[in-house]
């Protein structure tokens, strides 16, 4: 059984069909990249899976259960986490608290009545937050205010928040957008390391072809909301339809 499945998924904005009968299937442990030209519907697809948007028709199943009709926080609680395209962090909180917020949600659920319990007693939360910050290389900056971090570190923290939610499936929306070459390199290493150590299933949305070909098991190519090709990096490189629609015939 696939971890994540979409079935005839359609999203229309007025007359525009942003997602057109998409049937996507992600197996456990797989690294899938979704690529496509601007406006191909990549972000819409992620927003549908994370329940930021309601589909016009079709179904989305996670672990065999339909998630259409669930609130975003419920989907996260089921095990789907997302890292945002921009550094969507809690600027006024410390780096440690940023990770603790996500760890709190994963360890203690979407809501609780622990308003009289001191945070010091939440050892599980502290442990997860510490491990996560260690994994993304921000542990030595744990007590800094998140807003003080350089941009690359903010993006790493963004990924850290997504990881601290302890997901089964991680959706990454252009994790290297706006990063310098060094930061990009470090982030790709991070993604590979996380993949190796946590055995996470990834769905990656990315512009940078080099990264996509390097870290994907499988690539899904979207154009005008439709899946036009699907296969291993080598298959996609040689696919004529992809060359035509997306890469514009450029030799790779």
């Amino acid at each position: 059984m696939a971890l994540l499945e979409t079935e005839n998924l359609v999203k229309e904005f007025g007359g525009l069909v942003a997602t057109d009968e998409v049937n996507l299937s992600v197996e456990e442990g797989e690294r899938v990249s979704i690529i496509g030209p601007n406006g191909a519907g990549k972000s819409t697809l992620v927003n549908l899976i994370t329940r930021r948007l309601d589909p016009t028709s079709g179904d989305i199943r996670f672990k065999g259960e339909s998630i259409v009709g669930h609130d975003p926080h419920e989907v996260v609680q089921m095990g789907v986490s997302k890292s945002f395209q921009t550094a969507s962090i809690f600027s006024d909180l410390t780096v440690r608290e940023n990770a603790e917020i996500a760890a709190l949600a994963s360890e203690h659920g979407s809501f609780g009545f622990k308003l009289l319990e001191h945070r010091d007693s939440l050892t599980g939360v502290h442990q997860v937050a510490r491990d996560t910050l260690d994994a993304v290389g921000l542990l030595d900056q744990a007590d800094r205010q998140a807003s003080e971090l350089p941009y690359g570190d903010k993006r790493r923290l963004e990924i850290g928040i997504a990881l601290a939610a302890e997901p089964d499936l991680l959706l990454m929306d252009e994790p290297t957008a706006g990063m310098s070459p060094e930061e990009t390199e470090a982030t790709v290493d991070l993604v590979e390391e996380v993949k190796r150590e946590l055995g996470l299933t990834f769905v990656l949305i990315e512009h940078d072809m080099e990264i996509v070909f390097r870290i994907s098991d499988r690539i899904v190519v979207l154009n005008r909301g439709q899946v036009i090709a699907e296969g291993t990096p080598d298959e996609i490189k040689g696919d004529a339809a992809v060359q035509e629609a997306y890469l514009g015939g450029v030799e790779l």
């Binding site: 994370t50 986490s81 969507s88």
Partner: peptide, 14 residues
């Protein structure tokens, strides 16, 4: 207060 959307997307019932 800082980022309502992110709080929802770490799995908290905002």
């Amino acid at each position: 207060r800082e980022n309502e959307q992110r709080a929802e997307f770490v799995g908290l019932n905002v």
